[in-house]
Design a protein around this nucleic acid. Sequence first.
DNA 1: TTGTAGGCGTTATCAG
DNA 2: CTGATAACGCCTACAA
Lengths: 346, 346
Amino acid sequence: MKLEQATIKDIARELNVSSSTVSRALKDYPGISEETKIKVKEMAKKLNYRPNAIALSLRKSRSFTIGVIVPEVVHFFFSTVISGIEEVANSRGYTVILTQTNEKLSREKTSVETMLSNQIDGFLVSYSKETTDFDHFTHLLEKGYPIVFFDRIPDIPSAIRVIVDDYSGAYQATKHLLSQGYKNVLHLAGPSNLKISQERTRGYLDALSEFGIKANPSWVVECTHGTQEEANRLTSNLLKTLNPCPDAIFANNDMAAVGALMACKAAGYSVPEDIGIVGFSNWQFCSMVEPSLSSVAQPGFRMGMTATQLLLDLIEKKKSVEEYQEPVVLSTELLIRKSSVRVHPN
Amino acid sequence: MKLEQATIKDIARELNVSSSTVSRALKDYPGISEETKIKVKEMAKKLNYRPNAIALSLRKSRSFTIGVIVPEVVHFFFSTVISGIEEVANSRGYTVILTQTNEKLSREKTSVETMLSNQIDGFLVSYSKETTDFDHFTHLLEKGYPIVFFDRIPDIPSAIRVIVDDYSGAYQATKHLLSQGYKNVLHLAGPSNLKISQERTRGYLDALSEFGIKANPSWVVECTHGTQEEANRLTSNLLKTLNPCPDAIFANNDMAAVGALMACKAAGYSVPEDIGIVGFSNWQFCSMVEPSLSSVAQPGFRMGMTATQLLLDLIEKKKSVEEYQEPVVLSTELLIRKSSVRVHPN
DNA sequence: TTGTAGGCGTTATCAG
DNA sequence: CTGATAACGCCTACAA
């Protein structure tokens, strides 16, 4: 029992005109009498006519659809980005197709294929943690297919990229900890194949060196999954084994920061008195935990909007790839809460 | 610079056969010689042939695409549901188009239109808080168009609906509070036009009456937006004005529960000693707040999977609407944490 | 075993 | 100002 949609032909038949006339009348083409225009539009309304986007796509080889590939929807940051994408895409008349890879390269590849099959006009991509080889994207880029990478970006100069200022965020966070008088700052890092992780680690290291502290490689600990449990486990161990014992932790993400926070508390340390903590992303729960968690806020919504604007401008040829050789960088902001501010500094 | 996609015609031309032969060979139709099949498939690979889903849709009047309409992506529960939807849709070869309404009826309506234009095969809908009139859906239902409502469901018997057991969850939560010895349980309710809110309130009321407590209408307070701030403000006031002072709060959602928690602490009450609190949804932060928040867990992922399975079965005519006169109900689970368990019961 | 023709809904092109 | 025709890529009766 399919919804019998009225077509242009139906309108034409009812009115005894040709379908070309109807098509033109509906689009207010010049050279159509006012009279027929009105007749046609009325009939269209009467029959509840709705243009068939599929037929249009086929005809124009343009689908007015963009494909979004993210690692996980259930991730505060990404869901915020998606919100921004939706916003811009809708307002400019585009439809959004979404897939999540669940951090799997294989799913990323099939997603790309499906979307290409669906003739999407362009991609918005944040790749999976497993992705180290970008052939499935470079092939497309070479042919001039519009792709905008956001947050997790590849090292391909010809790719358009939107990121937040991870380096500066990490730098500010670490500097803030050091300024508070913390001396031994541990870094719970992200997967080292992601540029964002590298940048955050770089910011951490630079802040240390600015304070004349020699970085110790064993104080940069990779939290591969970035989950609370993992960070909890790692931190518990580190608190026992590292010498001197860390008195501050800068975590690559908030989940890890909370895990570390729990571990510190469980080990009998007080936060922020004994150990200061700063996270990254400013998830909703930052203000809810005890003590509230300082964090580097990333403008997710804005990132979604920016990336989509770029992509659509590209698709509509309002901009060209050449104009974006360098990544677009959105600023981050350190939000200082209780977890990193000593009431009685040492 | 569009990606020049090879078509069936291209393969046909290269091989000096007709396009129908190619079409058949690619699909392993009976009555095609092994030899041509192999030739065709090799050429297809060589030319990097990829079927054009758009053309297929037009031809078959089926798009293998489903439309998902949710109020907000940035919402732990909904993002979990989306995850479940993705999972099933992908594995059964369907693409997902997503829009969020931002709780606006107008956007809900335009979303429906756009999706219909895109010839989607069916809808998965959780409607907005503004939606009180369902004409834009009933029109479609009457024509037999496949729609599955989830979580927020309308009172339309002919609509297929998937919900969690809100009533039972709320009932269990309230009963739990009363069993802990709390006497005066306040209910921070959700918007009264949503069935889920009504059901949760009903569960609350029934638990009260089972304990021989006469419900007081002014103890059911509507939190329209369900935000932390709103709940915080409301609770602060209520703690001052209600007589007797509440010694427990059952909140319609976790954000509100946290708001209430903050208000209680700020007013000098200790949780759970003075005031017990239970939330609803089991957001990630429940285990992170201090004290950890008891909450009713909703199986979001499972809801997404179930709803999608139903929808696809419907689309593929493996099931009929008649088989689902009653809503499908997924069970909830009360997770008891610290916020509702007195160490020293009165 | 393969080819031909027609059509899904729309619009661009050319004629009238 | 309007109509006929072809084409987008694919599939499927029907014919050969």
